[in-house]
Write a protein that binds this DNA or RNA. Structure first.
Lengths: 212, 212
DNA sequence: CGCTTAATGGCAGATGGTGCCAATAAAGAT
DNA sequence: ATCTTTATTGGCACCATCTGCCATTAAGCG
């Protein structure tokens, strides 16, 4: 066998592409979040979300295992952006400096027109327990990515306690700073609020090194 | 009015004491966790938990708003113990030293005969998504307590970003170390595993200060 | 024992979420 | 164009989760 996935005569309807599926999820996500914000999570039924997005309730439940996971597609945008920046962290630079010059995912409007939506979701998680739980789970998944980067950097094994605790701490920094910027953006996102975010992260990192 | 709650002729059946209620919750909690461990969360219905504890399903749902919150009474034991130790942190001591001599909640069997049960729950949260979410929510609530202590110590306001990020980081340290000790205690809790826990926390704290 | 209030249990009902099957859609083969 | 094959969708039945409502019971007190 030269390639495992090579010889496939491929008959019948092909499965939809992964990007296609993600786009569908994102679309459903947007409708769900809008409804969540308007009337709260408890008062929004899966049927209503499905109807708003123009699909049957049954297929809605196929795209999301739980109602609260509707926030994932939007929230991962932010978390993934942070992880990507950390992954690109050059050895010779201090983290704080690297972030200052590379972490602009919220400013880079060209790369993401959902900024307001993402911040709105983060704000929602501050009041809706179910959404907060989903958010925290997402963050913990992201810790694995951070741990991998840190492991490579320090030469320690991926599951060394130092590595994992540092990853968790970095994640905490982003969490606190993000909560703040989301609150600050409650009434309109201005350039200032977004630029303030980087300074928040910087301040948080400085605060972190003062631990003990 | 000398006291707000003073003049109460108190007629009719008195409400049960708070401790009584907590004990009932803890009892339900133990049954629930045992069933969760035996057959998984999804395969355990509220009705079964109620039956095991000898109450009606209706009153079970009055004690716990969600099935997963059954783990709270046991998990708070551990989180609260940590918070209490941090609260007693004397100004003149390094945190790491204070913890070394004061953080023995898991060793102090006299104060808590549920050690094994607590560790079992932590282990459960590592495989059951729903329980993990409840655990993370609990931890985030505890961050407020930690933030309060840190605020008092540093003189900064309770909601200063440095304070909150340090609280989150401390919480992360405990989380990672606790996950480890729970895993280590998978086959029986020995004195060694428990004493190792303090060293885990120490190692984690050292790792934390190396961030950047 | 009556009176008052709190806790409990039972029942109905909406919502969350899954398994199953029929219907439809999208491709290649004939 | 039609047939065959496979993937997605929708509809339906069904169990579990959780809530509101009311009757019943328990616990105190005069």
């Amino acid at each position: 066998m030269t390639d495992v996935a090579t010889e496939k005569p491929r008959r019948g309807r092909p499965p939809v592409s992964d990007e296609q599926r993600q786009r569908q999820r994102l679309d459903l996500s947007r409708h769900a979040v809008r409804l969540f914000a308007e009337r709260g999570v408890a008062a929004t039924s899966g049927e209503q979300i499905a109807q708003a997005a123009g699909v049957s309730e049954r297929t809605f439940w196929r795209y999301f295992p739980h109602k609260e996971s509707c926030v994932e597609p939007l929230l991962t945008k932010m978390v993934d952006a942070f992880c990507a920046v950390v992954r690109a962290w050059p050895r010779e630079l201090e983290l704080i400096d690297h972030l200052r010059e590379a972490y602009t995912p919220l400013l880079d409007a060209a790369s993401d027109e959902d900024i307001e939506a993402v911040l709105a979701v983060v704000r929602l998680t501050q009041g809706e327990r179910a959404l907060r739980a989903a958010y925290l789970m997402l963050r913990e998944r992201a810790e694995d990515t951070l741990a991998e980067v840190l492991a490579e950097r320090t030469g320690l094994p991926r599951d060394a306690i130092e590595v994992r605790v540092q990853a968790a701490a970095m994640s905490a920094v982003l969490k606190v700073a993000t909560d703040d910027v989301a609150r600050a953006a409650a009434d309109g996102v201005t350039r200032d609020t977004l630029e303030g975010h980087r300074e928040q992260i910087a301040a948080a990192l400085r605060g972190l090194s003062q631990v003990i």
